[in-house]
């Protein structure tokens, strides 16, 4: 996983609630392998018309937002399908941070597994950020993971993050390798669980 320490970049506003993962990456892109990349799949049906021409009304088609690396959006972002491709699309397009009042649970977990920092932020603050972005397009936001701070001009705030996920992000660590270091505990549990729940550990 690509480590995340701090990031400064242009923020793009997409102030809609309940943006689902079908909208972030339509199903027709999901047969691709991870290494093939998903940058063109991001918001494909919003970015372009059915004939493939770019929709000038979509924020990411408008300079300077086309160079954005931070997305500021509405609540329940990433709801719906568990497809991790939604995170890969955002990351491959160049996004490093998503700021929203709330995130859907599965999307939230998927993001942190891929070095995409999601920052739950009160709605009022999200509104303030969006105002700054529309008043001064190209406004940059600075995010520092170690100090858990977001700074945008004269506005700054701190955010919460699970300490373990923070550690993994800062160091680009894979959780699986870390878990396998606890294999002895897992095997001990399996032995005990098998005795107390034989119907679960030995399916017919």
């Amino acid at each position: 996983m690509k480590p995340f320490k701090s990031h400064r970049g242009i923020a793009a506003p997409l102030p809609k609630s309940n943006i689902n993962t079908d909208l972030i990456v339509p199903a027709r892109y999901l047969t691709r392998a991870r290494k093939e990349g998903f940058d063109d799949a991001l918001f494909a049906d919003l970015r372009s018309e059915a004939d493939g021409t770019a929709d000038p009304n979509f924020v990411l088609n408008q300079p300077p937002f086309d160079a954005a690396t931070i997305l500021v959006t509405g609540d329940n972002f990433g709801c719906g399908s568990s497809r991790e491709h939604a995170v890969w699309s955002l990351a491959d397009y160049g996004f490093r941070v998503v700021i929203a009042p709330s995130f859907a649970d599965i999307f939230h977990g998927n993001s942190l597994q891929n070095g995409l920092l999601v920052i739950p932020t009160p709605q009022a603050t999200v509104n303030e950020l969006c105002t700054k972005m529309s008043e001064t397009p190209g406004t940059e936001i600075t995010v520092d993971l170690d100090s858990q701070t977001v700074v945008c001009g004269n506005l700054s705030y701190t955010f919460d993050i699970d300490p373990y996920r923070k550690e993994c992000l800062l160091n680009g660590l894979s959780e699986t390798a870390d878990t396998l270091r606890r294999l002895t505990e897992i095997k001990t549990f399996e032995g005990r669980h098998g005795k107390s729940h034989p119907w679960l550990t030995a399916p017919n």
Partner: peptide
């Protein structure tokens, strides 16, 4: 519950999953 691809890889390799209590 549903999981993403990274968690699938974790479960395949460890038969476990880290979760915070909802």
């Amino acid at each position: 519950f549903g999981i993403g691809a990274s968690e699938i890889a974790h479960v395949l390799a460890t038969q476990t999953i880290w979760q915070r209590k909802p």
